[in-house]
Amino acid sequence: MPDTSTQEISEVLSWLKSTDLVEVSYRNGAKGFSLATAEPGAAQNYPVPSNRFTPVCAPAVGVFQWNEPGRARQAEEGAEVADGQRLGLVETGKGKFSEIKSPSNGRLARVMIDGGAPVDFGQPLFFVEPA
């Protein structure tokens, strides 16, 4: 784009903002440009408490379980948790589990789920308050 003006760039940018794309780039020979929206991806519709809590969301659709059958629950509301500690599992099929881990050291501030409950992909299950 040899005669790219600020106005043209701003037109592209306003188009970009009207889509769900986060980045666009254009090249013509040695010339070109790249634009990215500053906004993060689409916000989740779930209520999120103040930002010192980190939401831990379901990694898959399925049934939430505290642990594999016959094994003890690893996490209690209010308890200290370690980075990478198992918080629970999502059962996605017979004998197939997807593990949910604590994202940091801290306190398991809030438990939003009961064992045996169905969960959607991306549904917040816990809030961890980082240490």
Partner: peptide
């Protein structure tokens, strides 16, 4: 039911998520 992120491979083509 939300079954996955945007890309089809992880949602509408995800057999396990749909069966679940």
């Amino acid at each position: 039911v939300c079954i996955g992120p945007g890309p089809s491979k992880l949602s509408y083509l995800n057999v396990e998520a749909i069966l679940s």
